[in-house]
Design a protein around this nucleic acid. Structure first.
Lengths: 182, 182
DNA sequence: TCAAAAGCTGGCCGATCGGTCAGCTAAGGT
DNA sequence: ACCTTAGCTGACCGATCGGCCAGCTTTTGA
């Protein structure tokens, strides 16, 4: 045995999350991951039951975090809810940049996965929270979509210091929603 | 012969642009397009030399439009440039919603294509135009990325009246850039 | 010391991909 | 009436995909 099981699994997950984020889930082959991780394709399928299981495991830590945000927003409304939604989404998008990018790349195919919380419920909760300041239903929808887009693009190859990026993202999102940015 | 050549080509392009936008370029097979267009896979390759040629042809009308916007921005600067950039990007994203969505889905793989104008030049021009109001280089980059994200999400399945959507997109982009929205 | 188990691999499988080709059908010019 | 040609298709090809398996090597512990 060359490496311990936990080491190899970690290497595989590290390679997979980077390659999936760079070229998409469908655009990354098992051989690509194996080469990057420094092992054979067969070794991947020794540690993981199939390609989908790799994706499931690297998305696993995201689910509980989003569920927690959803619960946090449940007790708020109005401007307070909007500010909490912005802060929460910015924080999650920065802590799981690669995972968020993977999710939004193949959004239609990947979104309703069991390891993620109920997307429709979270979406509705966020929409309500973010639309509190908007006058029309159209603006509501748009504000939510814009927020998603902002977070998507922030998950790219930007190499700014995290604190600078966090401040910029938060300020831009609040501006977009028409909230004061101190 | 069942249909005229121009009719079949138009049907194929119509199917392809919708399917590429919905499932991505790699996620759409020639058989998928053929089934949707109501012909055989071999017929696709009678009218187009290969799969890539289909993508090239449906992206063709986008190139000159972006080049024209780049030229229009060349003679402007400051707030005037930023407002022109926002208006131009919103207009293009609305008139080529499906094409823009296709481009941004597989952005890394598709962006430097011959039928599109020089992306780096356009990006630089837009960055300069949009960053005129921002203080720091970080904010510049972010403003540009946010604009792209807004346009990306606007190219989704929203079914709002085009004029309403245009107004919302423009207002949000100007707000994000810190410009007055009358 | 030595069998059991863990880690790993080359080689193979069926499915599906983009693409090719010989040939069929029907429209159009003479 | 006939032949050319445009439109179209089923069958097939090589490449690549995800996944499987027999078996090898190295570690482990009784």
């Amino acid at each position: 045995m060359a490496r311990s099981a936990t080491t190899t699994r970690a290497d595989i997950l590290d390679s997979a999350v980077r390659l999936f984020a760079a070229h998409g889930f469908r655009g990354t082959s098992l051989q690509d991951i194996a080469t990057d991780a420094g092992c054979s394709k067969a070794s991947l399928l020794y540690h993981f039951t199939n390609k989908d299981a790799i994706l499931t495991e690297l998305l696993a830590p995201v689910g509980p975090e989003f569920a927690e945000l959803e619960g946090r927003l449940a007790g708020l409304d109005g401007e307070e809810a909007a500010r909490a939604a912005v802060a929460g989404l910015v924080d999650l998008s920065l802590r799981f940049r690669l995972q968020v990018k993977i999710l939004l790349q193949d959004v239609d195919a990947l979104l309703n996965r069991p390891e993620l919380p109920d997307v429709d419920g979270l979406t509705e909760r966020l929409t309500v929270a973010l639309s509190g300041r908007s006058a029309t239903p159209q603006a509501r929808v748009w504000a939510w979509m814009a927020m998603l887009g902002i977070i998507l693009t922030s998950a790219g190859e930007l190499t700014l210091p995290e604190e600078t990026l966090r401040a910029e993202l938060t300020r831009g999102a609040l501006r977009t929603l028409g909230l004061q940015t101190d």
